[in-house]
């Protein structure tokens, strides 16, 4: 249980490193070594750490702990084959922590990131549509039931492709350097992460590594099915590389365009679910 959680943190950090490497290679740069994000986390954990004068101290510190806690919870939801609704709740809490991170420091850049985090809440709507569609197709919201359904009926990636595309978009919206990463855009320094440095940033690195691992894992479970652990890791890696390709080729959208795009995708998906529900 604990070993799996710690392994997930290291694998998530490794995935972040691979993500950066793939983007760099596509853009003709050598890029950092794939273990760079593990080194980053260690580096941040050794950096001098304090709390800015303008920060709200309890929120500034505890939001980091909450970020790790919710993704640890998300990990166990997937690990135990739990309900997709719980995972949706983790996503909602993640949105609140993103917002809280930006507001807690008192930095204007952090506040811009926090505001963009609220604006980009549209990125969670495709997830809601995916969950609804899952229930229409499989008759259950439990991840364990959905993997059993796929063992009998085949991967949902083929039979429910629009839902897979919607969840893919949700994961893309959570990737670093992606077209929807408007909350940590460079024009607002590092957005909501700007003032979290040292130990606090190392803690956030741990939380986001868990987040990436959980999202890639749940996508493979929901749309390909339960696999042996080594095959699961390969599938997650392939999914990550495909996301890295999109991040490398696509410029960051403006906040308005990002929200509009995700809303349109959700609209299309709602139409698909209605057709699916009516036709049975």
């Amino acid at each position: 249980m604990i070993l799996q959680l710690i392994s997930a943190v290291f694998l998530g950090l490794l995935f972040h490193g691979i993500h950066r490497k793939v983007i760099a290679r596509i853009q003709g740069r050598p890029g950092p070594p794939v273990w760079q994000e593990i080194l980053h986390t260690l580096k941040f954990s050794f950096k001098q750490t304090w709390i800015p004068k303008t920060a709200s101290m309890p929120l500034y510190v505890f939001i980091v702990a909450v970020s790790i806690a919710i993704w640890a919870g998300g990990f166990f939801v997937v690990f135990s084959g739990g309900s997709l609704l719980l995972l949706f709740a983790v996503f909602m809490l993640h949105k609140i922590t993103e917002h809280g991170l930006g507001l807690s420091s008192g930095s204007p850049y952090g506040k811009f990131g926090a505001i963009r985090s609220v604006m980009s809440a549209a990125s969670e709507i495709p997830l809601f549509a995916t969950i609804a569609g899952m229930y229409v197709v499989t008759g259950s919201l439990m991840i364990s039931d959905i993997t059993r359904y796929q063992a009998i009926h085949g991967p949902l990636l083929i039979s429910a492709f629009p839902m897979a595309a919607a969840l893919y978009l949700v994961i893309l919206s959570k990737m670093h350097y992606g077209p929807f990463s408007i909350i940590e855009a460079k024009e607002i320094v590092s957005g909501n992460l700007t003032e979290h440095f040292g130990v606090w940033r190392a803690g956030l690195q741990v939380a986001y590594a868990l987040k990436t691992f959980v999202l890639l894992w749940v996508f493979v479970l929901l749309f390909i099915g339960a696999l042996p652990w080594w095959l699961m890791l390969i599938a997650m890696l392939l999914l990550l590389v495909s996301l890295s390709f999109i991040c490398a080729f696509t410029p960051m959208l403006s906040p308005f365009d990002a929200v509009a795009f995700e809303t349109v995708v959700t609209g299309i998906l709602v139409g698909y679910i209605l057709v699916l529900g009516v036709s049975g």
Partner: peptide, 26 residues
């Protein structure tokens, strides 16, 4: 685990970040 894991991670980082020679660090 959800309560203890973040506590252990952050405390570990704060522990090896803290200096032996000074007072309250961070």
């Amino acid at each position: 685990v959800m309560l203890a894991f973040p506590t252990s991670v952050l405390s570990l980082f704060l522990w090896w970040n803290a200096s032996n020679t000074k007072g309250d660090i961070p």
